[in-house]
């Protein structure tokens, strides 16, 4: 499974979005789609657990979690190489 598919699945289960994640493009604005501050925190924690990563403080901002594509890039940057492969 690719990172982006994993990310979509985690958003579906932790993002508490009022819309179906499948209808969102990779670059769609998740905040505009209804992602709340609290849900973005839960999403962040779920991503860390699934990919065994820790977001550094510099990445703990809205931009990192703004879209499925942005989240996937951040995860790819932080995930151990063998897991990305």
């Amino acid at each position: 499974m690719s990172i982006i598919e994993d990310v979509r699945e985690i958003i579906a289960s932790h993002g508490k979005l009022p819309v179906d994640v499948a209808t969102l493009a990779d670059d769609a604005d998740l905040y505009a789609a209804g992602l709340s501050s609290f849900a973005s925190v839960q999403l962040m924690l779920a991503l860390e657990e699934r990919f065994d990563i820790e977001f550094p403080e510099t990445m703990l901002n809205r931009k990192t979690f703004a879209s499925i594509g942005a989240i996937s890039s951040a995860v790819a940057e932080l995930a151990p190489q063998e897991r990305v492969a």
Partner: peptide, 14 residues
């Protein structure tokens, strides 16, 4: 905590 760091950054950005 760390989740709080994210809440704080978000609060500031907005």
């Amino acid at each position: 905590g760390r989740a709080g760091k994210m809440m704080g950054n978000s609060q500031r950005e907005q």
